[in-house]
């Protein structure tokens, strides 16, 4: 009986849509930021390389263009859709030294994802990171 109940619960959860299937984290390494996407099982993220038409391609923009005039994120795999764990490298060239109080950078993301059963509308996320002077 317990087995039957577990099976029923498993079957139901398998069909429950995940409405937030991509988790993002932003970390710093020397000279670059690492934007990590953790994409839930059975879901795909439309990548930076996705051609126009249909779901939107991933967009990554930086807000503090006075500190970082432009960014060119590097996608590890040229595929149009990505699954699993993905690191985007964002080389960072600051226009001036980090002030003593530190510097906060904001990334604005816009992306779309689908599973084998559902599709989600375009989603926006804001991420931020504190940069400090090297000791």
């Amino acid at each position: 009986m317990r087995y039957a109940l577990l099976l029923a619960a498993t079957t139901l959860s398998a069909f429950a849509p995940n409405l937030n299937p991509v988790k993002w984290t932003l970390t710093q390494q020397p000279g670059k930021l690492i934007l990590h996407a953790s994409i839930a099982e059975r879901y795909k993220l439309y990548s930076l390389t996705k051609p126009k038409g249909g779901p939107i391609a991933l967009e990554i923009k930086i807000r503090e263009t006075n500190w970082v005039p432009s960014i060119r994120p590097i996608q590890p795999d040229p595929a149009h859709t990505l699954e699993g764990e993905v690191d985007f490298e964002i080389p960072l060239k600051l226009t001036k030294p980090i002030p003593a109080k530190g510097l906060t950078l904001h990334l604005d993301l816009r992306y779309q994802s689908c599973s084998d059963q559902i599709c989600l509308p375009p989603t926006r996320r804001e991420l931020q990171i504190e940069l400090h002077r090297a000791p």
Partner: peptide
């Protein structure tokens, strides 16, 4: 729900699913 998705079926306004 925290968001919307397609395709979504709503039955009598009391159940929703893929």
């Amino acid at each position: 729900l925290s968001g919307v998705y397609t395709p979504q079926l709503v039955v009598d306004g009391q159940s929703e699913f893929v």
